[in-house]
């Protein structure tokens, strides 16, 4: 298993380089001139002085061929240097280090919340298939599914402002154990919860119709035992495969949630950087986000055999 994990990690390095290469190329050929971007914001006049711009470009090594600059960038990244933001001039590494924990903590908490809420609801809905309870659960899941995070967020925020007494409106970031985390966490979890409820429900219904469960039922085992012994394990597998999708949903959701609730995370940072064509930051955020998705994929792959021994044999 360790060799497998190592092999996956080795395969993962060229993937990351490819992603960075693509974004770097887009920045290099498509985006605005970084020197102009820097100087437009700070000192007066320089951005419109071609001679000085050219001198600065030359000094900063921006006239070298694309591949040299890209190699240089990768070299710096390997040494932990992501460069400086074009807009604020601050170190990208430090900016990311401040923002990443917010998004990662929120994302992990959303996954935990999803698992705690969605899997039991899905199982209950399946066990009570076609009853009012089933419809209620499924209906709520669909409702959550149908509301985009960018609609749910602002509406809940404003409702909260109107309902809550003065001075107690949660806004901003105070860490995971702060009351202000609740609303963004909920909005962020809406889509994953809807997804997992439906996934779990159909997986359980499927397992219930299989022979071994019918046999167990015929033998008179109580439903609760059947669920824990025979059902939970097979349904966790398809649910787990959705985790990759959920990671992407979370990253996308984080963009909207962080914008609406004013959280200083990666999503907000990314959007700001994109609006300002601040490519050093965009590159770093893309890198971090890709790494997160890939790590979660790797964890899923590693967890597979634990849940489904047959999958381990096949490898």
């Amino acid at each position: 298993m360790l060799t497998y994990a190592l092999k996956r990690l080795l395969l993962w390095i060229p993937s990351v380089v490819l992603v960075l290469l693509a974004v770097y190329a887009l920045a290099f050929y498509g985006a605005g001139d970084p020197i102009k971007l820097i100087f437009l914001r700070e000192p007066g006049g320089v951005a419109f002085d071609p001679v000085r711009i050219e001198a600065i470009r030359e000094a900063a090594g921006l006239n070298r061929p694309f591949i040299v600059q890209f190699g240089n960038y990768i070299w710096n990244v390997l040494h932990g240097d992501f460069g400086n933001s074009l807009t604020s001039g601050r170190s990208v590494g430090r900016t990311i280090a401040a923002a990443a924990p917010v998004s990662i903590q929120l994302g992990l908490l959303a996954i935990v919340l999803t698992a705690i809420v969605a899997i039991p609801l899905g199982v209950i809905a399946a066990l009570r298939q076609n009853t009012a309870l089933d419809y209620a659960i499924l209906g709520s899941a669909l409702f959550l599914w149908a509301i985009p995070a960018y609609v749910a967020g602002p509406i809940l925020m404003v409702l909260l402002i109107i309902i809550l007494p003065g001075g107690s409106v949660p806004y901003g970031w105070g860490g995971l154990f702060d009351i202000r985390v609740i609303l963004p966490l909920l909005v962020l979890s809406f889509h994953p919860i809807a997804l997992i409820v439906r996934q779990t429900r159909s997986a359980v219904i499927e397992v219930l119709s299989e022979d071994f469960v019918r046999t167990a039922k015929a033998k008179g085992l109580p439903a609760r035992k059947i669920v824990t012994r025979h059902i939970l394990r097979p349904i966790l597998t398809p649910v787990l495969t959705q985790l990759g999708l959920i990671m992407i949903t979370l990253v996308n959701g984080a963009v909207f949630v962080e914008l609406v609730f004013g959280l200083p995370g990666l999503g907000r940072l990314a959007i700001q950087a994109l609006l300002n064509s601040d490519y050093p930051i965009i590159l770093a955020v893309t890198l971090i986000a890709s790494v997160l998705v890939m790590i979660s994929n790797l964890l899923i792959d590693l967890a597979y055999p634990l849940l489904d021994p047959r999958a381990a044999e096949r490898r």
Partner: peptide, 15 residues
């Protein structure tokens, strides 16, 4: 607070 709707609501409530 970047969002002008949230900002307006907070001001309206006197927060």
């Amino acid at each position: 607070i970047e969002d002008s709707v949230t900002a307006t609501a907070l001001l309206k409530e006197g927060e």
